[in-house]
Amino acid sequence: MNQPPPNQNGEKPFAEVAPQPLHQTDADEDDENVKQLDECSALYLLMQDCVVRSNRNWKQCQKEIQALKECSEKRNKNKGT
């Protein structure tokens, strides 16, 4: 199997460079934000899954959206007491 020679400056050809995960820091930040939702995090993930499954058709995900909204309101109310 022939390998392409290094570039003139000695770097490996593009095809041999290990790919970096796209937007990894964004994904890490999303994970942290979801964790901060505490008891509502599972509902948020269900809503997110629905949106993906429905090809971003929010109308099909109203049940999940409403459940997340109610959980969030309850959580905020409990924080105030």
Score class of each variant (00 low, 15 high):
Glu39Ala: 10
Pro13Lys: 07
Lys59Cys: 03
Asn55Glu: 15
Gln62Ser: 09
Ala42Tyr: 00
Cys50Glu: 10
Glu39Leu: 08
Thr25Gln: 15
Pro4Thr: 09
Gly10Ala: 08
Asn57Phe: 04
Lys79Cys: 05
Ala42Met: 10
Phe14Met: 11
Arg75Ile: 08
Gln66Tyr: 00
Leu68Val: 02
Asp49Glu: 11
Val51Trp: 08
Phe14Asp: 11
Arg75Tyr: 09
Val52Trp: 05
Val51Ser: 15
Asp38Gln: 13
Gln20Pro: 01
Gln20His: 06
Tyr44Glu: 12
Gln3Lys: 06
Cys71Tyr: 03
Trp58Lys: 08
Thr81Asp: 14
Leu46Ser: 13
Ala18Gly: 00
Leu45Lys: 12
Lys63Gly: 05
Ala15Tyr: 03
Arg53His: 03
Gln62Leu: 07
Glu73Asp: 12
Gln48Gly: 02
Cys40Tyr: 04
Thr25Arg: 13
Ala18Leu: 08
Ser41Met: 08
Val34His: 02
Pro19Gly: 12
Leu37Arg: 09
Pro6Asn: 09
Tyr44Asn: 13
Ala67Met: 11
Cys40Ser: 05
Ala42Phe: 03
Ala42Cys: 02
Arg75Trp: 05
Val52Asp: 10
Arg53Trp: 01
Pro19Val: 14
His23Ile: 02
Asp31Pro: 01
Phe14Ala: 12
Leu43Gln: 09
Pro21Leu: 13
Asp28Tyr: 01
Lys59Pro: 01
Gln60Cys: 04
Glu32Arg: 14
Asp30Ala: 13
Leu43Tyr: 02
Asp30Thr: 03
Leu45Phe: 03
Gly10Gln: 06
Gln24Phe: 08
Asp30Ser: 05
Glu70Lys: 08
Gln60Trp: 01
Lys63Trp: 01
Asp31Cys: 00
Ser41Thr: 06
Tyr44Val: 07
Lys59Arg: 12
Lys69Arg: 13
Lys12Gly: 03
Ala15Lys: 06
Cys61Met: 04
Cys40Lys: 03
Leu22Lys: 13
Asn33Phe: 12
Leu43Ser: 08
Lys74Phe: 00
Thr81Lys: 13
Glu11Thr: 09
Asp30His: 05
Glu32Lys: 09
Lys59Ser: 12
Asp28Ser: 08
Asp38Asn: 13
Gln66Cys: 02
Cys50Pro: 05
Lys59His: 11
Phe14Cys: 04
Glu39Trp: 03
Gln60Lys: 15
Asn76Leu: 14
Ser54Glu: 10
Arg56Glu: 11
Asn7Tyr: 00
Pro21Arg: 13
Arg56Met: 15
Glu11Trp: 00
Leu45Val: 12
Val17Met: 11
Gln60Tyr: 05
Pro5Val: 04
Leu22Glu: 15
Pro5Phe: 00
Pro4Lys: 15
Asn33Asp: 12
Asp49Asn: 07
Gln48Phe: 06
Leu46Arg: 14
Val51Phe: 12
Glu70Asn: 12
Asp26Glu: 15
Lys12His: 04
Asn57Trp: 00
Val52Asn: 14
Asn57Arg: 10
Pro5Trp: 00
Ala15Phe: 04
Ala15Asp: 09
Glu70Ile: 01
